[in-house]
Write a protein that binds this DNA or RNA. Sequence first.
DNA 1: AAATGTAATTGAACAGTGTTTAAATTTCAA
DNA 2: TTGAAATTTAAACACTGTTCAATTACATTT
Lengths: 205, 205
Amino acid sequence: MGIADRKERDKEELRERILVAAKSLFLEKGVEKTSIRNIADRIEYSPGIIYHYFKDKNEIFHALHQGGFLQLMEKMQVLASVRNPMERLKAMGSIYISFAMENPDMYDLMFIKEAPLDHVFNSEHDHWKEGGGTFNYLRMTIDNCMEVGHFKGHEPEALSYMIWATVHGLVSLNIRKRCEVVLPHRQENIVADGLEEFYKILDRL
Amino acid sequence: MGIADRKERDKEELRERILVAAKSLFLEKGVEKTSIRNIADRIEYSPGIIYHYFKDKNEIFHALHQGGFLQLMEKMQVLASVRNPMERLKAMGSIYISFAMENPDMYDLMFIKEAPLDHVFNSEHDHWKEGGGTFNYLRMTIDNCMEVGHFKGHEPEALSYMIWATVHGLVSLNIRKRCEVVLPHRQENIVADGLEEFYKILDRL
DNA sequence: AAATGTAATTGAACAGTGTTTAAATTTCAA
DNA sequence: TTGAAATTTAAACACTGTTCAATTACATTT
């Protein structure tokens, strides 16, 4: 059955080539401004071929979207070695933010863009599996913090959401260029500075 | 000069009609999916006419964008009557969030969408005038809070950004449907609940 | 009232888009 | 070598933002 196998691999390889081309184009010029023809040009095939590998443009987006979460989860691995739960929580915030700042377009795809997410969520009623994993890890870390006496009087689910919202807010305002309202000489480091203010607060809870 | 005046008014009226049509279409189906032809259809003119009133589609977006900030600033007026700066800060957060939840598409246009913002910022080098106003008011409120002894050890500019990021994060994750990761029965009120957790924290600072 | 000049408006055209589909080509087992 | 199956293509469809020459409408002047 070696031949069937090779054909399988060839098919898989072309699918991969489409994804690589789509990713670089999406990150280069944005999802909306990347056309199917652009992608086809880059892999030197005709536009039609793409529809044999993906239902539509959204499905390409979705595939890349999933890849982004794998990347983020991988970065999060180091957290296992941080014993103190409060330190772990802060390290998690730093990893989240550095991922976002190092891969702003991918972050955009994962957490800000709206375009094809009906597809992501509604399909398979699996409640946005990729995002759920990281959120649950945050939630567990908050639980651990509470077990050792932090966050007294707080409600863990809503608190987790609030903390996520804070780090997301810090990076997403920056990515979408709403930082121009802060003093010009503070703009360059405003995300890190804002995170530091947040840590000052966490240290008191 | 009555005739020239009337023509002036007519011109202004058609401009307004374009904006009204564009706004309802943008909020109905999104900016990207609204075409110039859609707008022209709704006002019963030919597509070309729109380019006599606006340079391009971005300029229409920009005009609506400005309108949104007027709306928000108007809602903020009541804050003048809140004497206690810490209460004023919290009231500001509540107004911000209720504005966002009541006008999610307008909020999207103002703070989340990226599309035509190069235009908004780069033109006139005026540092995003509309957004700057509300941020400065937040910044002033933080200063007032510090004057009466709150936020000791904090840096006001970065703290203001962090607080804005938190409320923005709360609403923008919700608007872009990233809330499906929280427990299903908590989803409906997660923005309000998250805000409450934030207030619990502010009360201790 | 008729002619003129100007501003408003149109509709066709251009170059692009996502997607579908019939046809052509290639591949490969029998 | 043949014939069927899989792969790939090119053309078409209906859309997009934008431009622009031509037309229409109309206030002003003669």
